[in-house]
């Protein structure tokens, strides 16, 4: 199998410095909704200037280059052991080149590893074998500010009056958006997983964020709830950076999982506006980035 270290390095460079077009388009549309001269509009203008500069200079959009989370889908015959090593080498090189900030800190000894590699779980790499001849590698960089405002609720939640149904889901998600205020770098994108256990809830609430902004959920019930949650989150008036304003959430993505009869978890991953995700596709000699 071929060595993809350089391609992984390019994937990371693009993820850190080049915001995907669907996210940028939503931010551009959001500007028009904020009053001229308001702090909210000023924040969005600065955000857009920054997006352009980062792309032009190949420098990080945000200094918190986040937890690198990789999803590898590979045809039969690829060595996941070698792919893992190549991804890790690329990440260390990306750190040297200042595409990435050294972000892996040993939680017990408080020591930064200096190269973004730490134990078996930093970076996070998910592997899945798939049919066909095409390898795809997606990466998401999720900053700590927005990760810290993520939340998991166990329904029923008596305090919020949230029962074990989609009406209850709506209530806890709105509560999470309110609690986050501007601290997750609003306007954010919500990834919501309903069901699962605590672990799968968190990982699926992130995975669902790979779906393009503006693509409606194939389940009409969830599509309606996504639309409602985005609209009602914006009614809260938290606004860009929490300055107050019209745009608090750019989009909502929901996924449903099976759950135990006893459990009903709702997990919310809050993604900041600097929603960095990129994809590498390899078929034979053909390499492309999206």
């Amino acid at each position: 199998m071929r060595d993809l270290t350089n391609e992984f390095l390019e994937l990371i460079r693009r993820a850190a410095s080049d915001l995907p077009p669907d996210v940028e388009a939503r931010l551009r549309a959001a500007i028009e909704k904020e009053e001229p001269g308001s702090a909210a509009r000023g924040a969005l203008e600065t955000i857009l200037k920054n997006i352009e500069l980062a792309r032009q200079n190949s420098t990080p959009i945000c200094q918190d280059t986040g937890t690198p989370i990789f999803y590898v889908k590979h045809p039969e015959g690829w060595s996941t052991r070698k792919l893992r090593a190549q991804i890790r080498n690329a990440l260390a090189e990306a750190t040297k080149l200042s595409y990435m900030r050294p972000n892996a800190v040993d939680a017990i000894y408080d020591k930064n590893s200096g190269n973004n590699l730490g134990g078996d779980d930093f970076p996070t790499i998910h592997f899945e074998e798939i049919d066909g001849e095409t390898l795809t590698v997606e990466v998401m960089l999720k900053g700590g500010g927005c990760e810290n405002v993520g939340a998991q609720y166990s329904l029923p939640d008596n305090h919020l009056g949230a029962g074990r149904d989609l009406a209850g889901v709506r209530k806890v998600v709105l509560d999470a958006v309110h609690k986050a205020q501007g601290q997750g770098c609003a306007p954010g994108i919500l990834g919501v997983a309903i069901g699962g256990d605590r672990g799968t809830g968190y990982s699926k609430s992130k995975e669902v964020l790979f779906d393009k902004i503006g693509t409606p959920n194939p389940d009409p019930k969830l599509a309606a709830l996504e639309e409602q949650l985005t609209a009602e989150s914006n009614q809260l008036g938290i606004g860009p950076m929490g300055f107050g304003g019209q745009t608090t959430v750019l989009d909502t993505k929901i996924t449903g999982l099976h759950r135990l009869p006893a459990s009903y978890f709702v997990t919310v991953s809050y993604m900041c506006w600097a929603y960095r995700r990129r994809k590498l596709t390899v078929t034979g000699d053909q390499v492309s980035y999206a």
Binding site: T46, K49, N57, I61, C62
Partner: peptide, 13 residues
């Protein structure tokens, strides 16, 4: 003072 979160390349200038 509130700076714009995520505007890291811009602020570095």
């Amino acid at each position: 003072f509130h700076a714009i979160g995520g505007a890291a390349t811009y602020i570095a200038q």
